[in-house]
Design a protein around this nucleic acid. Structure first.
Lengths: 328, 328
DNA sequence: TTTTAAATTGCATACGTATGCAAAAAATAC
DNA sequence: GTATTTTTTGCATACGTATGCAATTTAAAA
C-alpha cells in the first residue's frame, strides 16, 4: 500500500520530456515552448502532480515559510492579528509556521523549530524574546520583526503603535474635558505596550501638576474587574478610567455597571486596541484604534523585502481615537 | 555576504568523521560510539549546527508537519483550540502549518499549500470542506480529521462533542425544572454543531408535546443580541434561552440585562462551549462544557497514530453541564 | 537553399540528509 | 595468542527539485 507521491520524473516519463523540462514548466520565467508546456501541464493535472516544496526549498535556499510566534494571552487583539498575518502572507505566497507558547519568553527550543525548517523570517507578536535567542537568529541570518513590542536592547526590527503619543492624545482629551479624578489600569508591567501607554498618559498629567491613580493590572479581564470593584467599594469613584487595553477597559466597565455607576455620565471609560468586542452593542467602548492593517503590512514588508538589513528599524505608527458610548 | 547555513558536511570535516556519522549522531537509535558522539556534538554546538528539516523530510518521507485550517470566525472557542493544538503537537515533535481562511469553504488553493509541503495530516476546525477537496487529499494519501464538525458524506475522520445528546440533557434539565416558555437561538444553520444542538433540543420537547421558539442566529454576538432585544420588545419574554454557543448566549444575556430582566429569576440562560469568557465575573454563564482537551487529544491521535485508516472514524465525546449564575 | 541567430531541451550536478551494505575496528570467546 | 562475534564507520546512493552548460531544434536572415 506504499503509495509514493508522484514526482516530476513520473510526469516527465509520460510526457516524453526530461525532468528538467517539467521543472521548467513549474518555474516562472523559465524557457519552455508553448507546445510542451501544454502537454506537461495536461499530464501533471492528470497525475495530480504538484512540485515538492521541500525539495524546491532545499535547492533554491528559499522556503517561502515564515515563523509566527505568539504568546498564550486572552487578548482577542492578537487573534485578529493572527488572521491578518496569515492571510496577507499567503497572498504573497508564504506559508506560516505557527508557534503558540505559554511561556513568558519564547524559548530556544521553540525557535529551533523555525531554524530547522529554514523559515525566511520570524514574527514575534506578544511574547518576549531573550537577546541570546536574537543573537542566535542573527548568526543564522534569519531576520526577526517584533510586532507590537519594542525592546531597546534587542537588535531587531519592530513595528508598533506609537503608544506614548497615543496615550498623550488621550490624556489631552481627558484634560480638556475638565476631568481631574483619573485612573489608569496598567497591563502586564513587563510589556513595552503597557509601560509606554502609562508613560505617555502620566507624563502629560505630571506636566500639568495633576496626580493620577495607577492600578496595576495584568491585561486580563478578571484582574481589571476586581481592581475596579475594589476601588469603588473602598469609596473611590473616579471620573475617568483608562485601561491599558480594551479587555482591561471592558473589565472595568462591567464592574462599574454592576455598581450601577452611570457611564459616561458619572465615569467615562477609554480602552486601547479597538478589538471587535469593543464595538459590541452592550459595550460600545470608546478606544484608541491601532492601525492594525498598516502595522501588519509594515511588519511583513520589513521582514521580507530587505532581509539583509542588520541594523534595526523601529517603526511607530499612529492610530486614532474612536468615540463610542463610554465617553461624552 | 552570502552566508550559507552550515551543514553536516561542515561538522564532519572538523570532527574528522564522515557526514554519515554526523547524521547518525542526530538520528535516534543509530549506532555511534560514545566517544565520537561527544566529539561531534561538541563541534556541532560550536558551529551552531542543526539538521535541516527539509532535507530530512525529503529523504525520510516524513516532514513532522501538520496542517491546521481554521475559519475566520469570532468565536474564542477556536482560539483556545488553536493554542491547545499547537502546544500538544509540538510536544509530539510536530510543527504546525497554519491557514486562516475567510471563505466559507476551505479552498483548493489553500489545501495545495499543505500538499506541497507534504504535511502528514490536516486538521480542519470550523471551516467546511468540499468533498472534491477531500477526495484529492485521499488521492495524495493525506489523512484529514474534522474537529468539531461532522459531515456524513465526507470520507474522513471527525471528532466532536456529542451535540445531540448534550442538547437533550440540557432540554431535560430545563423540562424538569418546570420551564415551558423556551427559546433556542441557532448558530449558522449550515454547521453540524448548530443543527445537532437544535435537533437534540427540539426532539426532546417535541416528544413531550411542547412547542419551543427558534430564533435563527449566526453564531455572532451582535445577531443574537439584536434578536433577543427584538423579541423582548415585541412582548415575548421567555423563561429560558438556550444559545447554540456561548457567544450567542452572551449576546442574549447582555440584551436581557439591558432590558432589566432579572437573571436567572425571570429568565435563565444556557450556553455551549465553556469558553473562558463565560466564566468572567459579570457573565458567570451556565453552559455545556465541551471536553476540549480530550477532543484535541483524540483528534491528534486519530490523525497521527493510524494514518492508513481509510475508513472514517467518527468520535463523539460527551461533556458536562456547568452551573453558574444564569441558571437556578 | 545555406548561414546565422535564437529558442528549446537534455545532461549532469547540487541542495542536505538518511541508510543499506561492506569494510574496519573493537570486544569477546577460545 | 587466534578465531569469532559485535560494534562502529565510511562509501555510495537516494529523496525531488533547479539550473549552468552544451547540444539540438526552430526561426530568421541572407
Amino acid at each position: 500500500m506504499e503509495k509514493r507521491s508522484i514526482s516530476a520524473k513520473d510526469v516527465a516519463k509520460l510526457a516524453n520530456v526530461s525532468q528538467s523540462t517539467v521543472s521548467r514548466v513549474f518555474t516562472t520565467g523559465a524557457s519552455v515552448s508553448e507546445k510542451t508546456r501544454k502537454k506537461v501541464l495536461e499530464i501533471a493535472e492528470e497525475l495530480n502532480y504538484r512540485p515538492n516544496a521541500l525539495a524546491r526549498g532545499l535547492i533554491k535556499q528559499k522556503t517561502n515559510m515564515v515563523g509566527l510566534a505568539m504568546k498564550d494571552i486572552q487578548n482577542p487583539f492578537y487573534h485578529e492579528v493572527l488572521g491578518m498575518f496569515t492571510q496577507k502572507l499567503r497572498a504573497k505566497g508564504y506559508s506560516v509556521l505557527f508557534v503558540y507558547t505559554e511561556n513568558e519568553e519564547i524559548q530556544q527550543d521553540e525557535i529551533n523549530h523555525f531554524l530547522e525548517y529554514n523559515v525566511e523570517g520570524i514574527i514575534v507578536t506578544d511574547a518576549l524574546l531573550s537577546s541570546k535567542v536574537v543573537t542566535k537568529l542573527h548568526d543564522n541570518n534569519i531576520p526577526v520583526t517584533l510586532f507590537n513590542r519594542y525592546h531597546k536592547d534587542l537588535e531587531c526590527n519592530s513595528v508598533s503603535c506609537d503608544n506614548i503619543n497615543a496615550a498623550k492624545e488621550i490624556a489631552k482629551y481627558v484634560y480638556e474635558k475638565g476631568y481631574r479624578d483619573i485612573v489608569f489600569i496598567t497591563g502586564k508591567t513587563n510589556t513595552s505596550t503597557s509601560r509606554d501607554r502609562q508613560k505617555g498618559f502620566m507624563d502629560f498629567f505630571n506636566q500639568k501638576g495633576i496626580q493620577i491613580t495607577i492600578l496595576e493590572g495584568d491585561y486580563t479581564y478578571d484582574k481589571s474587574y476586581y481592581l475596579t470593584k475594589g476601588m469603588i467599594e473602598s469609596g473611590h469613584q473616579p471620573e475617568v478610567i483608562f485601561g491599558a487595553n480594551d479587555i482591561t477597559a471592558i473589565g472595568a466597565l462591567d464592574a462599574l455597571k454592576e455598581k450601577n455607576i452611570s457611564i459616561p455620565d458619572e465615569t467615562i471609560i477609554i480602552g486601547f486596541d479597538n478589538i471587535k468586542m469593543s464595538s459590541w452593542p452592550s459595550y460600545m467602548l470608546s478606544t484608541w484604534a491601532q492601525p492594525m492593517e498598516k502595522m501588519v503590512d509594515e511588519t511583513i514588508n520589513l521582514l521580507l523585502t530587505d532581509p539583509k538589513t542588520i541594523n534595526k528599524k523601529v517603526l511607530k505608527l499612529n492610530g486614532y481615537f474612536i468615540h463610542r458610548n463610554t465617553t461624552k
